[in-house]
Nucleic acid binder design. Structure first.
Lengths: 249, 249
DNA sequence: ACCATGCTTCCACTGAACGGAAGGATGGGC
DNA sequence: GCCCATCCTTCCGTTCAGTGGAAGCATGGT
């Protein structure tokens, strides 16, 4: 049952955003491995550069692994094309700009631009959040395979704030709305202090490849004023993607 | 000799920027594995999400691996703190902004901001370049451990353009200059069309944690006009790093 | 109909991976 | 100074997971 490959991956999966640095013992415990086995695996991973060992003796993910990860088409290709557009959008809005893709039944944030004056949000490049509670999530869900959509709506939907929409019927209505208007406005569903305006980025084959959003403070200006810029940016990226024959899927 | 772990890593290392998508056979060949062995390993990696299989049957690096890679402190922690400053610098200059760290005897680019109006450069997030031919490289080399510096200067230095400085003595002089002025100006050493102005980012323990640069067109304005902004940005990030007790090394 | 290319499955053999145990290293309490 | 706790490293005999050659399948070009 426990193949070596699986164990190696377990070791990698032991790291998380809140615990990015682990001692050998912690690592072994989290990966469910005997200490001596972990010691050997971690040693090999470290030699290669997948892990690195800090001055304090604790291990963390290494630069080499990060490099390989950076080759993931949904990160590299997408970001390369999108960046100039995101940059423009940032300049107009001076707020956090996020780019995210769908993976399984979650949103994965692929890039985030943030300025000193933007709201402090807890999303993180490489982070995951559920689809129903974020702007980008609503966009991706609205245009996802209907089968997936039903699966998500059938599962219990976590409540983050009292503004989080957890009712399937209401969500369904919102998703229809997203499809007609082309944007999603998610108001305080994940954090009360912020709301986001999101729009879909279309890939070359008529599918939604990603979603982008602007996060604005909840007390700030009317979110609708951001809609045109967000929509234009999304359209710009979509066009650039279809031209470029880019390394997306 | 061939441990399973090493083989898994060989499979991952088979992907590169120019060949981010591979068939099973290519993968097996590049990793030096029999087809059936590769088939099994790749299968396990794919189930976990380290690799993904495209519609065309070819494999590429998966989002899951990218996520783990994103936990590398030198990427995540550094970028989180630096981003707002880089953003400001971009707004002032409207040119490519690059953030890079030292790994071994090379520069690894950790982030890059680019606008529509910036020069098109071939550096890539996750990419590697030698130290002697880039602005960030000169900065990192200038402040590196003297032992490493000697090792780099002793090795043969690749020539990219006729402006590339490959003479150790001259490089040594330039590095001393970088240390006194606090910035490096690398003119056409890697590509004739661009030059870069780079400055060191200091970590909390008085070591150089990273370097940042602005890349400007070679025919453009005087590079020296960028120096104050670059220097100020680098100083800002350095300060933010020492405050934050950040997840750097 | 044939061949080329690339993928998948099977299975008997074997040596690489395993992990318990013993030995270091470090550091803190008293 | 001594003891104990925590964490890391090394060793080595046993065993079973990993191996890879071979045969079979799928596609698609000519």
């Amino acid at each position: 049952m426990p193949t070596v490959t699986a164990r190696v991956l377990d070791v990698l999966a032991a790291f998380s955003a809140d615990r990015p640095r682990l001692t050998l013992s912690e690592l072994a415990a989290r990966a469910g491995l005997p200490l001596s086995t972990a010691h050997r695996l971690v040693g090999e991973l470290t030699v290669w550069g997948a892990l690195e060992r800090g001055d304090d003796g604790r291990y963390h993910v290494g630069l080499r692994l990060w490099e390989v990860g950076a080759l993931a088409p949904r990160s590299l290709g997408l970001r390369e094309t999108a960046m100039p557009f995101l940059e423009d959008l940032y300049e107009v809005t001076r707020q956090n700009i996020q780019l995210a893709v769908l993976d399984g039944t979650e949103v994965v944030y692929v890039e985030r631009l943030s300025g000193r004056s933007s709201v402090h949000v807890f999303t993180r490049v490489g982070g995951r959040l559920p689809l129903h509670a974020t702007g980008v999530g609503l966009v991706l869900l609205a245009h996802a395979d209907p089968q997936l959509r039903e699966r998500v709506l059938a599962a219990p939907l976590r409540r983050y704030t009292d503004k989080t929409v957890c009712d399937p019927a209401e969500l369904r209505r919102m998703l229809a709305d997203v499809r007609t208007t082309g944007v999603a406005i998610s108001d305080g569903q994940i954090e009360l202090i912020s709301l986001s305006v999101a729009a879909p980025v279309w890939g070359p084959n008529g599918e939604v490849a990603a979603a982008l959003s602007v996060v604005v403070p909840a007390d700030g200006t009317n979110p609708h004023s951001f809609v045109p810029a967000v929509r234009a940016t999304a359209r710009g990226i979509s066009r650039a993607l279809s031209v470029g024959e880019h390394h997306l899927l």
